[in-house]
Nucleic acid binder design. Structure first.
Lengths: 180, 180
DNA sequence: GTCTATCGATAAGT
DNA sequence: ACTTATCGATAGAC
């Protein structure tokens, strides 16, 4: 098996040497996939690749209609994110899934040869919780359910994170404005 | 300005017609970036592109030392995720940031010419909340504080989601440099 | 899954 | 920031 393009690392193709219409001699080179030590180069690469990554992410979900969230923190603590239908929706679903997993040690439902629904219908119902209401307006049953829901959210963060430590919230959060 | 490769849509390059060593005649074609209607094709594309996307994501954080989380739900609800240093860590940081944002409408500290710290030092100590305790053991002050904390978590998920849920198409804000 | 031609992303250079 | 050669990802066919 021989591929025309070298897999990941490895090289050895000269530009066809002599007669080229554009001997400008610049062009992409192969790079090692390890932390770029030069700070400026790293920033340039961060910018270029972040752009490319987010673009690819968008195309991916447009083509496949998948739900996606991508969250990036630069070295300096700047936040970049993209999500379909929204970062929060996907994060929420992710957390819910974690929550369900732990609530039900065994899966209660069989995975049947599922027909995928054509449209996720995100904009539809999904009232789920009483987001708009005040806690004070809830009766005791609702309040209990509410507590349960919040507790579920909390567990998501806690369970796996446990030893990961709630890192000290930070020295760098406030840098988000500028300073890049 | 003329680029050698057509930007996004648009085409018109024939394979150099006559003498080719491999007239096998297959090769990548350009496709429209819209939902692939054929279910099988969509699944194939999902698989291929998800693989590529995750690979690129991994290279990205290895090169730039950024923290990242990517979460994908397929049409059938299957979860795929990747994170550095972990999905949970980044999600947690994301939620914290949202939380801090709303708690402090104005920034209390000045942004000084920051030197980026070399290592994030994730493993520091922090007891933060009483994760191990039962709710029942809390006194009323603690309980109130606990409620407040949970409420904060909830808000993260809710605040921005509201009208976002209605939104269908993802526009490309992120190309300008600020995600979300 | 594998293969190949081609498209799309990007390292260097300017 | 813009350009260009080249690398890396992948659509279509097996």
């Amino acid at each position: 098996m021989q591929t025309p393009c070298n897999k990941e690392e490895g090289s050895g193709m000269q530009p066809s040497s002599s007669s080229s219409r554009r001997p400008k001699g610049t062009g992409r080179k192969k790079i090692e996939i390890k932390k770029i030590e030069n700070k400026f180069s790293r920033k340039v690469t961060f910018t270029k690749r972040r752009k490319g990554l987010f673009k690819k992410t968008e195309k991916f979900c447009q083509l496949t209609d998948a739900e996606i969230a991508i969250i990036v923190f630069s070295n300096k603590g700047r936040l970049f994110s993209y999500g379909y239908p929204s970062v929060e929706h996907v994060v929420n679903r992710f957390l819910d899934e974690q929550c369900d997993d732990q609530s039900d040690p065994f899966s209660p439902e069989e995975v049947l040869e599922e027909e995928e629904e054509e449209e996720p219908l995100v904009g539809g119902g999904e009232e789920g919780y009483w987001f708009e209401e005040s806690i004070d307006d809830l009766d005791s049953d609702q309040f209990e359910e509410y507590l349960c829901y919040l507790e579920c959210l909390r567990k998501n963060l806690v369970l796996r994170v446990g030893e990961l430590i709630m890192r000290r919230t930070s020295e760098i959060d406030f840098l988000k404005g500028f300073g890049n």
